[in-house]
Design a protein around this nucleic acid. Structure first.
Lengths: 195, 195, 195, 195
DNA sequence: GATGAATGAGGTTTCATTCAT
DNA sequence: TATGAATGAAACCTCATTCAT
């Protein structure tokens, strides 16, 4: 990639981060393009030089962070480890993402409400499905190896994901626990839902 | 209450339910007063005879359903039962509300984003805090009676609430499990987080 | 039709006339909804209470005036008269419309450029085709009766329509000739293209 | 002219042609500088190296083609021929221009709407007036020589010009008649308006 | 009680134009 | 010469809210 393009790409990502921050704070509909541009010390018009629409901007936010999360999750699922170790790693990783990238993660809880363009919605749902299926695979693995014992694996997965994703709604940097502590507490506890 | 007033109150609640349905479907900002009025076979103007503003309308939705939920939760917490039985009852009750009143429950995940009028926001946060504290009290009870064993009770409560509230994002009436089955599976599983 | 509806309809037509006037003056793209609203001593918002979009507003202008023109033309074509008398009447009528309703007539010379919604474009083209085919029918009639003698009837029709429609580009109320005089001169002259 | 200047001039004309094409297709307001640049495989910024503004670009389009048309028309009017032969030549020439340069010709039917800069508008109107007056002169010539007989020469000229200019609205390269055939049919027919 | 009509503030988007490189 | 980037003015459109009837 040329230097010019690298610089542009870096800028694009910077813009996505700012957008995610504002959208996280105000919600998609209340975050105006002016707000996002102001955060970037830019004008609205410039934003549109990089992104075709507000929806597309937010879509790219989602894509950016989920692609990374999916990559890490897939690596974990391919490791040569017991299922219990894998699921613990997965939980810790997911929570780390959730917290460190909480602006982007949180942005879109109900994508059906947000994305009007069909491609966007489909892509977002696919990315979410990928994360889900990686967790499912690890659980299945644990079951077949006799490490886990759970009557309804999908439901267990739902509980685990739900418990984790809820962190978004209460986490704050000045809370009692660090990100690492939360991750540990959650992985130690949630594993019980599989045993 | 006079007959007249009862009738008016019934109508008010009917309006709140319709509003909640639309807001659930489209999200607060995308649901227009026209949409809500159309669902009620009314005109926008008439809505304003009953409610001062859109925010107030949604606020009353929230109040209606949470007041009911809080009442039931308080009854449970006052029952003469082991803590384990109480927490199971609480989980089952919460999930029932969550599912049966999912339009209203779901509406407001991030109240800070939604309510501009201070009274509204404070009241909503108080109602949520009430539910939270009832759960906390039951857990404390179980700990002091030696029924539960958990190193961080607040975190356990967070996981339980998170797992439950996440149900909103995937539940559908034509899914595999009935509301009652989900409630049972969840209460049977989530109790493990306290033992 | 109820009194209320009649009043509304009258208002709608008044709005269409004002819109046509502004669009005639400035052209579709340069005429803003603000301009049109100002002409009506209204606000932009009110315009949108009556019309869904600028395109739809202009479309309805076109429809209104062409429907009337088509009706009159059809009446003429059904009269029991020699073809020559019919075509003269048609020319005079067309020119009267052209001049009296010149705002609306003129508005849209290239509908393909203007109408994005398919329905609109189709409908507009159909209306234009109707006028065209009425003229064609009268010419065919004159040919079969031996009144006219022309080697290429379609081309003759094109010339006649073109000569007439061009009036829009130069007519002004304070010109040398009245509308009636122009109509007479044109009908007397253009008939030569068919003899 | 130096070789360098010739090359530059050739490029300028090429750019004008591309601009005219796009403006013909989309209309002045809908044709963006980006569209025109894309047609030229350039960027918007580069266009501004050659032209000060969009209006100026389009103005130069108009000037280019009309200057040529006027030159030819003047040559015809100076020929030593009967008026009838002259007017036929003029009609054929005008139609040829109209069709071959239809992108440019068509661009501006209502120059008052388009040109804001006074110089531009004046110049355009002058050019049009030149064409008009050449036609008028030929008609006067025919009248004084007794070749033509027409009660209102200006009106006849309007009809002839209108009939011709209307060709723009329906001509297409895959139509029934070639450019030459159309020119002949029109000149044969329209002459009747002067006899 | 109910409603049709009106409004104005504010949002997204477009685009001619400018300019540093 | 050429261009990527930036800008700001202005356009279309939405919608909560108000109000006379």
């Amino acid at each position: 990639m040329s230097l010019r393009k690298q610089k542009t790409e870096k800028k694009r990502i910077e813009m996505l981060r700012s957008a995610a921050k504002i959208v996280k704070e105000k919600g998609y509909d209340r975050a105006t393009m002016d707000d996002i541009a102001a955060e970037l010390l830019m004008t609205k018009g410039s934003l549109y030089y990089y992104f075709d629409s507000k929806e597309q901007l937010v879509f790219q936010c989602h894509e950016l962070i989920f692609n990374e999360a999916i990559t890490v999750m897939e690596e974990i699922s391919r490791m040569d480890l017991p299922a219990r170790a894998k699921i613990e790693k997965a939980i810790i990783t997911h929570i780390k993402f959730l917290i460190n990238e909480r602006d982007m993660f949180n942005m879109i809880i109900q994508p059906e409400q947000l994305f009007i363009e069909e491609n966007h919605l489909r892509s977002v749902l696919e990315q979410r499905e990928k994360i889900t299926s990686i967790i499912d695979r690890i659980i299945e693995e644990g079951l077949s190896k006799g490490e886990f014992s759970v009557s309804d694996p999908k439901m267990a997965r739902m509980m685990i994901l739900g418990a984790m994703n809820w962190i978004q709604t209460w986490y704050s940097t000045d809370g009692k626990y660090s990100e690492k502590e939360i991750a540990n507490i959650y992985s130690n506890s949630l594993i019980k839902l599989l045993l």
